[in-house]
């Protein structure tokens, strides 16, 4: 009798705590503290589900043909495979390659040039861009008000059936915050569940001496900007970070992408100029274009024998996270 009461009250106590705490981001203990402040946008299952529905709904574009997932497909670690430059409404071609979406809670600035200062505000850029989705937030609010079951879902998520730009963006953020990739072989090794092969271990050593400075473990990017010695593409004349800051020292600087899931996210670089990992490594060993603000780590050049290149690639492949890519919770909602 007493034991039962104690047991029941204990269960109630625990459930009360968990209800109060709500949904938490799940990530391994070797990850740093997230950059996104959840206090302003506390996670809930209803809001995450709503964000997922919006992410996959073409209603966010002007002619209802392009959704976020059109260029950020879950099967490609939320990148746009096969297209060097991504295409939006009416087959208009943009000027950059859509990057993979993962571990966004740790990013500081968004877009290849860091023009966006917060995850919440990021979605506005593709929604409004005439070559991407070409739509305005006002129109989206009007369209969603008339489309079943959105008013009900907004009511459930925000306790308010009035749809606002704020709540649309908060829901999209919540779904994207959940896109955490932390189950690759590298992670299994970190969690002492698996071991690297000898070749992967040799590659890991090479990685730490040559790549880790910018593509820093465990997220495999320090999310800053760098000039990595790419020659300018005269058909695009994209000067990257310079376009935002107008500082000459920021010319040709682009956001350092994470190396996680790299097999799924080809083609590579901000303009998708390289199709294979081999091409990327060859760029770093013999394709660097010298300039005043070239990343200091690249000034001396990276020297790798062909055996070393194979070892390095073997390690890089351990960053592929198939559990993330094929996670049904992130796929098209049915």
């Amino acid at each position: 009798m007493k034991f039962n009461i104690i047991l029941i009250s204990f269960i109630l106590f625990i459930s009360a705590i968990t209800i109060k705490k709500g949904v938490q981001l799940k990530y391994p203990d070797y990850f740093p503290k997230p950059n996104y402040d959840l206090k302003n946008n506390p996670l809930s299952n209803e809001t995450i589900a709503l964000g997922r529905l919006l992410f996959y709904d073409a209603i966010l574009s002007k002619n209802n043909t392009i959704s976020c997932a059109s260029c950020h497909s879950s099967y490609n670690a939320f990148a746009h495979t096969d297209h060097s430059l991504s295409h939006g409404i009416n087959d208009l071609i943009g000027k950059r390659n859509a990057p993979g979406l993962m571990n966004l809670a740790w990013h500081k600035l968004f877009m290849w040039d860091g023009a966006i200062n917060h995850l919440d505000m990021q979605a506005l850029a593709p929604i409004n861009h005439p070559k991407e989705m070409g739509e305005s937030m006002n129109n989206i609010v009007d369209k969603l008000k008339k489309k079943h079951p959105y008013p009900t879902l907004f009511k459930r998520a925000f306790r308010d059936s009035i749809i606002t730009g704020e709540n649309i963006l908060k829901a999209l953020s919540q779904f994207q915050l959940c896109l955490i990739s932390a189950e690759s072989k590298y992670d299994q090794v970190k969690k002492n569940r698996k071991k690297f092969s000898d070749q992967e271990n040799r590659g890991y050593v090479l990685f730490k001496t040559n790549c880790n400075f910018c593509h820093t473990e465990p997220l495999f990017s320090n999310y800053t900007f760098a000039n990595n010695g790419l020659a300018i593409d005269s058909t695009l004349n994209d000067f990257g970070r310079w376009q935002v800051t107008k500082k000459s020292t920021d010319s040709l600087m682009f956001k350092i992408p994470s190396l996680r899931n790299l097999s799924y996210t080809y083609p590579y670089m901000h303009d998708g100029r390289f199709n294979t990992i081999n091409q990327v490594i060859n760029h770093y060993t013999k394709g660097i274009k010298q300039s005043a603000n070239l990343a200091t780590e690249l000034k001396k050049g990276i020297l790798l024998s062909s055996n070393e290149k194979t070892d390095l690639i073997a390690f890089l492949l351990t960053l592929n996270d198939s559990a993330f890519v094929f996670n049904l919770n992130f796929a098209y909602p049915k």
Binding site: D37, N40, N41, A115, I116, N117, H118, L119, D120, M121, L124, A125, I127, N128, H129, S136, M137, N138, V141, T164, G165, E166, N167, L169, K170, S173, V244
Partner: peptide, 24 residues
């Protein structure tokens, strides 16, 4: 307020007073 994410009311981006291509 410019760097702390999305806000509602008069600061809601749907008021057309927020740059979409560059935050601010």
């Amino acid at each position: 307020k410019q760097v702390s994410g999305v806000m509602g009311g008069d600061l809601d981006p749907m008021n057309g007073m927020y740059w979409t291509w560059q935050s601010g």
